[in-house]
């Protein structure tokens, strides 16, 4: 019977694929994991690297900074990734995990990313300080007697009369996102420090302070809008009273639709972030597994391509994608140590 023959063939194929399980492939292609913020830059470089050299184009996965570190530090060998991207520095715990598993990370700082608070072009212009951001978005703020109370502010004007008199409505990333981590650490914590009662608390009990500074309100004023920043921009276009939190590269690419709020008098512009004037910005990194250099072909060349002036320089192609380059001298120093594969120390 025909059908039984087909069945037999398919069963044979199934057997074949299961036996293939035994033969592990040696890898000749770089594997990159890590931060979704660095993903657009890393993929750009991977593509150019694949076109310019005879190596295969690296495979880049977007796993988030934390997830990338976990994979990266899990061990040495073809089964683990060669490079991980991070939108923050490696944590001490992660560095220790790496060391325990025999992984020596080489740190490469690639540039800065600004985090912007933006709204639709036809909405009100916003000029805000970090202190006001904290007051508008924190779960608990100090009341008039200095005791912590649930955030009472309903409109921006409640926070400070110079702000527009509209309901506080902010679309931002969920807690799993590196953008959220950085926003909380830089904008919220930075703002909380400016408030006297909290500054005093910080001196007395750092953990208690952090708990307050890092808690974002959950009463509907802050809406977790998912990891897709394009979606946030679409929602901002539809609702001119809402603000969104996302990376500078999205503001840059959508400058025709949304406008970034001025923070502490500085506009979120390329030059201001590069000069360090714009306060809500963070450094971006990638980490190379030193043990894989020379084993997986092309790692050194990939690092050289990434740290090339045409790539990460002021007129490089990453600047077109929204990466804010490091200052000239720092770029030179990082390139040198990266190309020498100098292991990092904590």
């Amino acid at each position: 019977m025909k059908i039984t023959k087909i069945m037999g063939l398919l069963a044979g194929a199934a057997l074949l694929t299961t036996t293939a399980v035994g033969s592990v492939h040696a890898r000749d292609q770089i594997q990159i994991v890590g931060s979704s913020t660095v993903f657009p830059f890393s993929t750009s470089v991977a593509e150019q690297f694949g076109q310019k050299t005879s190596f295969k184009t690296p495979v880049v996965e977007s796993t988030g900074s934390g997830g990338g570190m976990k994979l990266f530090c899990s061990g040495v060998g073809a089964g683990s990734p060669d490079i991980t991207n991070a939108s923050r520095r490696i944590k001490e715990k992660e560095f220790k995990l790496c060391a325990d598993n025999g992984v020596t990370p080489v740190e490469v700082k690639i540039g800065f990313d600004g985090i912007v608070l933006a709204n639709a072009k036809n909405g009100p212009e916003l000029s805000i300080t970090r202190e006001q951001i904290f007051k508008a978005l924190a779960k608990e703020v100090p009341g008039s007697d200095g005791k912590m109370i649930a955030n009472p502010y309903k409109t921006w004007a409640d926070v400070d009369p110079s702000l527009p008199n509209i309901k506080i409505e902010v679309l931002g990333p969920p807690p799993t996102s590196g953008t959220r981590d950085a926003f909380v650490e830089i904008a919220m914590e930075g703002g909380a420090k400016k408030i006297e009662t909290l500054a005093a608390l910080r001196k007395a009990d750092k953990n208690a302070f952090k708990k307050i500074a890092h808690a974002i309100r959950e009463d509907g004023a802050y809406v977790e809008a998912g990891e897709n920043d394009n979606l946030i921009i679409q929602k901002l276009e539809a609702n001119s009273n809402a603000f969104g939190i996302f990376g500078f590269s999205f503001l840059d690419q959508n400058a025709d639709k949304v406008r970034g709020a001025t923070v502490n008098g500085v506009e979120p512009e390329f030059e201001n972030i590069a000069a360090g004037d714009y306060q809500i910005s963070r450094s971006l990194f990638f980490y190379v597994k030193k043990e894989h250099v020379g084993v997986i072909p092309g790692i050194e060349e990939f690092v050289a391509e990434f740290t090339n002036e045409d790539t990460w320089g002021e007129d490089g192609y990453l600047a077109d994608k929204g990466l804010i380059p490091l200052p000239d001298d720092e770029r030179e120093a990082v390139a040198e140590s990266a190309q020498a594969m100098a292991p990092m120390s904590f």
Binding site: Q31, F39, A46, E47, K56, T57, V59, V60, E61, S62
Partner: peptide, 8 residues
């Protein structure tokens, strides 16, 4: 790892 940027 199949949610990845693969050029080739």
């Amino acid at each position: 790892g199949m949610v990845a940027f693969v050029v080739d």
